[in-house]
Amino acid sequence: MTSGTDGATGPVEGRVWRFGDDVNTDVIHPPAFYSLDPDKVRRGLFHGYDPTIARDLRPGDVFVAGRNFGCGSSRETSIRAIKLNEVGAVVAVDFARIFFRNATNNGLPCLTFARPADLELVEAGTRVVLDPVAATLTCADGTVVELVPPGEFVREIWAAGGLLNLLPTGMSAPES
C-alpha cells in the first residue's frame, strides 16, 4: 500500500515517527552517507540523530513533523533514503520548499495539517492510515485528522509516479 514510483497514490498504513521543527537535510541524511550506492544511502537515514531509526522502520511508516521539515540542502539523497526505507509519506506543519518539490517529484507524498494544532493528536508509535488523495490521516483511536488536499498538479505528478514520467507530455500547462 505504500506509494512509490509505480504511480500508486492509495492509502498508506504504518506507524508514526514524530519529529520536531526545522529538521534539516543534514540531520535527515548526514553528508557522510552521500553515495550512489543505494544500500549506503538507505543506512544513512537519520544516522547521527538516531542510528536505530533506519533499522526499525517498516514499510508504510509515516513521518510526522513540525514546522519547516527538510530545510537545507537540495541533495535528493535525503529523499532517496526515505524512499529506500519505504516510508509511506511525510506529514508536517509545513515543509521547506526544495524538500517538498524533491519529495513530490519522486512520488513521496508530503502533506500538511489543515489545522497545525492537530499535530498533537498524532502520537509517536501509534498506527495510522493516511489517504494522500483524500487528505486524511486516521489515528489508531479512529480520530480523523484533516490535511490540506494536494493540488491538481501535485496529484498529477503522484499519479504519473514522479515528475520524470511527465517528460513526454510535460510541456502541457498544469491545471491549478
Partner: peptide
C-alpha cells in the same frame, strides 16, 4: 532545486 527538477 533537486536533481529531478534539474533533469527536467
Amino acid at each position: 532545486m533537486g536533481a529531478t527538477d534539474i533533469l527536467f
